[in-house]
Design a binder for these strands. Structure first.
Lengths: 231, 231
DNA sequence: AACATCCACTTGTCTGATAAGCTTATAGGC
DNA sequence: GCCTATAAGCTTATCAGACAAGTGGATGTT
């Protein structure tokens, strides 16, 4: 143990991170993935750690593991871009692309969610949304708190749609937005405008007006363009 | 080793499957998850296997593992329902619900994909789609082959949208449809009708008509209702 | 050239330790 | 009695070395 011992994460996760970044950057030659032996030598960790690191990459569909065969790389089109791990490990350019694609996906999905939610909306949920809205209005000078409330607001609406697949999507959406926040210290003045748009969504839901909820959500997302994405 | 040695899957996966089914069925009392010790005793496996089984459950967001603390169960709303593993391990009723929700999600997403694809469609992609369509037409007496072509057809369209998040969604969709095929030996007569609808989508794409592609896809999915889902 | 056998390499599993982090209870001081 | 600090005992994390099992290629034979 001659190295500095920082323990921000578990050891296998750190190793997996290094490997993932290397693969994502195209720094791996053939279709051959990293073998246990290579990891042992390069990182000086035990086999258990090396194996767990590989399992992590496999769970992201970045590699394929099978007994007897060497680890092979899998096509990047099938990686699990919904995972917070992979988001962290992508090189900046790819990360920006993915965040833009994620936002485009939100524009497809969330208006539809809002429409369904308008149908299923209950008094209790509306109350909770109202509370969130008030809190947002009061947190416009605190971007971190505002983001959390924002995420909760959208998630609460999604829950009303009673669709676990959509729930999962919104759950992943949390990581993208936190990542996008991380790379670009965001629009400080846009928050009041955001609250207005959220209120418009809320009022459409109160009225149980599917079309209006859908349209309000679409307008909100189109305005809240993915931050810090040049080109 | 006094038990029969069947090796359909790796050992940790089998253990994880038993645990996951137990958790999903509500057969676990408090918020306490299974500990390594409990697994050792119950299944008679090594610690390495027990640990990997837990890691699998953690990768599905079913449990939370942290050093020193006991394993705790996570809320079912946040499980990774897009994973083929979890789909297999859900009890039948939940599985049916999820499949219905997955289909509802397809109806939201895929028409939008078709519209975007119509914009970006290239000659090469159209050719490949045409080939797939011909193959489908010729495989209407072979449901298994037909399903594979069907999946490829939808995936090919999705690829044209150039959105990795949507790609990932379609990739997961594969597992749902294979699962839904598994639980209900499906409509043998519906295949010719399906080919017609696929052709309608194809022709809209050829014409690069966004609205028509969107509508054709929607009609297709609304007709191809999730199979074997009563009520 | 075709086929069977064997061998080297890879991942899968087992055993038994030690390290590190958390919870709880216990003992001490005030 | 109450609060604090220490220690004990639980949990997961990591290490080490071994053997089992599966794959693919080399080898050798026919």
């Amino acid at each position: 143990m001659d190295t500095v011992e920082v323990k921000l994460q578990t050891l296998p996760k750190q190793v997996a991170g290094v490997l993932a970044r290397r693969i994502a950057s195209g720094g791996v030659a053939g279709g051959q993935g990293p073998s246990e032996q290579q990891i042992l030598q390069e990182f000086g960790v035990s086999r258990a750690v090396a194996r767990e690191a590989l399992k992590i990459l496999a769970s992201l569909d970045m590699i394929e593991i099978a007994q007897g065969r060497r680890v092979v790389l899998r096509p990047a089109e099938e990686w699990d871009y919904l995972s917070p791990l992979l988001i962290d490990w992508l090189p900046p350019e790819q990360m920006r692309e993915i965040l833009a694609e994620a936002h485009a996906t939100r524009i497809i999905i969330e208006p539809a969610i809002a429409a369904i939610a308008a149908k299923h909306m209950t008094k209790e949920k509306l109350e909770r949304l109202g509370t969130l809205l008030a809190a947002m209005s009061a947190s416009e000078d605190n971007p971190d708190a505002y983001l959390k409330l924002d995420l909760d607001f959208h998630m609460e609406i999604c829950r009303a749609a009673q669709n676990r697949i959509l729930d999962r999507f919104m759950y992943s959406s949390r990581w993208w937005q936190m990542a996008s926040r991380r790379i670009s210290n965001q629009m400080p003045h846009a928050l009041p405008s955001a609250t207005e748009m959220h209120r418009a969504i809320y009022e459409a839901l109160v009225a149980r007006d599917e079309k209006r909820a859908e349209e309000a959500m679409r307008r909100h997302l189109k305005k809240t363009t993915a931050v810090g994405l040049p080109r």
